[in-house]
């Protein structure tokens, strides 16, 4: 017989591993990716592949040549960042845009902090925001000529962008009519927005998969969506000519993508349920404020980044309910 193994308890381990969790996230993002490929053709597929490959490659290179340690390296986590980044770009963006985004996302937002689990900001969002500020035209407009299908709606800007522009020119919402979309159009399939914003249904399917696999909890997305809905509802009731309706706000501009897949990133979100509620409400409020009053038509990315900053503080002050403490 071999030598006995001796270890402290417990002697068994659960099935989840970092790698399996990250692969689950990749799987959950596949429906949204497929929708974008369906709508925009091979360019969308190319973007997703370039995003994944460049993120994984950059992280591996940094691990290998700067950290000089690839032992505990988790490539699937980088793949998630790459895929998210690709889904955050216009489906018609050029390939080098993703590569630049990957370098910023992995090289600056993730690895400078020490790699997996150490970063303060969500890498994919840092990449996206960098691109958004550096290449605003490329990031907010596209031509639909590469599509496999004839696409007639919004070839210039996202619905949120159209609204913002219209309001800036002194129009009222009823004159702009960009938010006047049917519910089914918003929920199942629309052509405006970046690759990951096309179909709310696809995002929801992916998110439900994550819930079933017990990878994420529903707290953060639910509070974000509820906050946005309630806040927009109040504003919309006060002045429907100036403020877009809440349903439009929930389904547009990557709110669902951000709420389901980016705000729920483990590393950059709070641990306790109480903290997650604060985090979600914060993102919701900041998103609405930016959309209604800010310079940018879209605010989810900024909202998540801003709330990322306060996560350490939230973690410090929001403790889970200890056993034996009165409710």
């Amino acid at each position: 017989m071999n030598k006995l193994i001796v270890s402290p308890s417990p002697h068994v381990h659960g099935k989840q591993s970092t790698n399996s969790i990250m692969m689950d996230v990749v799987i959950a993002l596949l429906p949204a990716t497929l929708v974008s490929v369906y709508a925009h053709g091979l360019n969308a597929l190319m973007l997703a592949l370039v995003g994944v490959v460049s993120c994984v490659l950059i992280e591996w290179l940094i691990q290998k040549f700067i950290f000089k340690n690839t032992v505990g390296w988790c490539g699937s986590a980088a793949a998630v960042t790459g895929l998210l980044l690709a889904l955050n770009l216009p489906p018609t963006a050029p390939w080098w845009l993703v590569v630049v985004g990957s370098i910023v996302a992995i090289g600056i937002a993730k690895m400078t902090f020490g790699g997996l689990g150490q970063n303060i900001f969500n890498p994919a969002i840092v990449g996206r925001v960098f691109l958004l500020i550096s290449f605003p035209v490329l990031m907010t407009s596209w031509d639909a000529s590469g599509s496999w299908f004839a696409v007639d709606a919004f070839s210039g800007a996202t619905p949120l962008g159209a609204v913002k522009e219209g309001l800036a020119n002194g129009l009222t919402l009823s004159q702009i009519t960009a938010d006047n979309m049917s519910f089914s159009e918003q929920f199942f399939f629309s052509t405006g927005g970046s690759a990951g914003e096309l179909s709310s249904l696809a995002l929801l399917v992916g998110f439900i998969y994550l819930l079933c696999r017990k990878v994420v909890k529903v707290t953060i997305p639910l509070t974000i969506i509820a906050t946005v809905f309630v806040m927009c509802g109040i504003f919309h009731l006060v002045n429907p000519e100036l403020y877009t309706n809440p349903v439009f706000n929930v389904f547009q501009g990557g709110l669902l993508l951000g709420a389901f897949f980016m705000a729920t990133d483990y590393v950059t979100s709070p641990m306790s349920t109480k903290g997650q509620i604060i985090f979600g409400v914060g993102i919701g409020v900041i998103t609405v404020l930016i959309r209604y009053f800010g310079a940018y038509p879209e605010g989810v990315s900024f909202a998540i980044l801003i709330m990322n900053c306060v996560v350490p503080l939230i973690n410090k002050y929001c403790k889970p309910r200890r056993f034996g403490e009165a409710k």
Binding site: K3, L4, I5, V6, S7, P8
Partner: peptide, 17 residues
């Protein structure tokens, strides 16, 4: 060696066990 230790690599942890 008479057995194989498979826990956190710390003498303190090991000797407590």
């Amino acid at each position: 060696k008479t057995n194989q230790y498979d826990g956190y690599a710390s003498c303190k942890v090991m000797s407590a066990l």
